[in-house]
Design a protein around this nucleic acid. Structure first.
Lengths: 276, 276
DNA sequence: CTAATAGTGTCTATTAGACAGTATGTT
DNA sequence: AACATACTGTCTAATAGACACTATTAG
């Protein structure tokens, strides 16, 4: 069939000509939290945490999963992610970036579903209400070897363990194929999504100011350093750390006291092109 | 309706419950080419180029677009990208990475189509056959300001110009929303896809060995430097450049002669964990 | 006073930028 | 011989790592 114009073609277009499938978004919401420590002198330990939802319907009934939802036929991908974010945390204007699109044919037992995952970072202090019953923050612990990544998630009541193996994809870049080798409590391919998000964050914290999306308005440099340390999974030296972040923050009049030690000045984030 | 098991739920699942849409992949194939120079003494200039296909059907009949295709209901996303790559270049085992998923509601005039774009890098010397009539390599020239990116594509016969404006997405990272402000020869939202790919490549060339996917097996350091320069859009100093790439390459016995100047040693890529 | 963190100064090692200078082909 | 590129040496500037030292609080 030949058409004489784009308009004519579109009028006659049969949209059933190509395969159709469903799409979802999954939102990986990271934050940091404090672990209270018995010794009054010691700082509270920062923990890096992820928000999970307990499924109360099939498929994967009673397993934990990332907040997510189907994309409407007239809905932008990112709008869908923001809708999910709003539903689970009641927050808007949150840092959000597209992470990766997972399209394995059998990643959902119901039918072919392609899922675009998003990475969101929030400051937990902004959460006005406690999250609802089937939603919970899990602290993340990571142990990584050449071949495997083992992750523990802990919400105080329940402990989740999963293992993902790394297979180098090519010689020229440090990309890996992740394959889940142990997982009994997470739904879908969410172990892979979580690992991808952690890697993305680890990378970006080194060359962007992304970390400040997880910080409260006022913070001490010690707290900021702890957040870097928990995400990078290693200790940093304070003088070097302070040099590096010196031009990203500015000192305020506020002071944090109460620990059994010298009080600490509180700082605020200064964006690159700001004049504060 | 309640189910007693995952199996029972799946047996009764109605897959028409959620909206369905079509998905495509678009493959951004980059390579480098030589521009022959009249002066026998001078080196040929390297050009950075992209493969485009001329559409001979609606929609966007007679416009240029990235190679792409619909995803089959039982096809992995990346397999679809490899299928497209094989069809247009007859090449396999090519560097391929997922770039971004574009899902604007009206990006395709036919219906809702979400497209996952892939970035592929090839060494043009591996192309055994000349590409077919409706397929062509376009050299890329970029001029960038604070607010806009202007790109010219040239295949020797036809010149394509498009302009994309940059809108900073947030203060903490250098992410932009791209909005096409001028485009009369490219189909779909492909100006945005091309710009995203160029940015990705510019970034990755700084901290990975990705560039070697576009190089022939044997190359001189001058050629390699030219490729870096054309992708980064700036001149580099030879001594510093040589220091930086020293541990990524090794010298072979081959020598390149014929220019009106001192011959150059030819090098090969050495992967990080190789022992050559 | 003591334990613990806050914050600074400085030395050293490594890396990046700049540029001068030597080497060696082709016409 | 002259031009153009290949390749090296070295000085300097900037950055990162290490560690010692001082400051200040609650108990």
């Amino acid at each position: 069939m030949r058409y004489d114009s784009e308009e004519e073609f579109l009028r006659n277009y049969d949209s059933s000509k190509f395969d159709k499938l469903s799409m979802t978004v999954d939102v990986l919401i990271f934050s940091v939290s404090d672990e209270v420590v018995s010794n009054y002198r010691k700082l509270s330990n920062k923990k890096f945490s992820v928000l999970l939802v307990k499924r109360n319907d099939y498929p994967f009934k009673d397993k934990w999963c990332l907040p997510g939802g189907f994309i409407g036929i007239d809905e932008e991908l990112e709008d869908a992610a923001r809708r999910v974010l709003k539903k689970e945390t009641n927050l808007e204007n949150i840092y959000l970036e597209q992470l990766y699109t997972f399209g394995e044919v059998d990643r959902d037992p119901r039918m072919r579903i392609v899922s675009t995952s998003y990475l969101a970072l929030i400051d937990k202090n902004k959460l006005n209400s406690k999250v609802s019953a089937n939603v919970s923050w899990f602290d993340i612990s990571i142990s990584e070897t050449d071949k495997e990544i083992e992750i523990y998630l802990d919400n105080g009541e329940e402990r989740i363990r999963f293992v993902v193996s790394k297979k180098l994809r090519d010689m020229t870049t440090d990309r890996y194929d992740f394959v889940t080798t142990f997982n009994d409590k997470l739904a879908f391919d969410h172990p892979k999504v979580i690992v991808s998000g952690i890697f993305r964050l680890k990378n970006k914290i080194e060359y962007t100011d992304i970390v400040f999306n997880m910080m409260p308005e006022y913070f001490t440099l010690g707290e900021l350093q702890q957040v870097y340390e928990v995400i990078l999974g290693k200790k940093l030296l304070a003088p070097a750390f302070r040099r590096i972040i010196a031009d990203k923050v500015y000192k305020t009049d506020k002071v944090k006291t109460g620990g059994g030690h010298r009080p600490s000045a509180m700082y605020k984030y200064r964006a690159k092109n700001s004049h504060l």
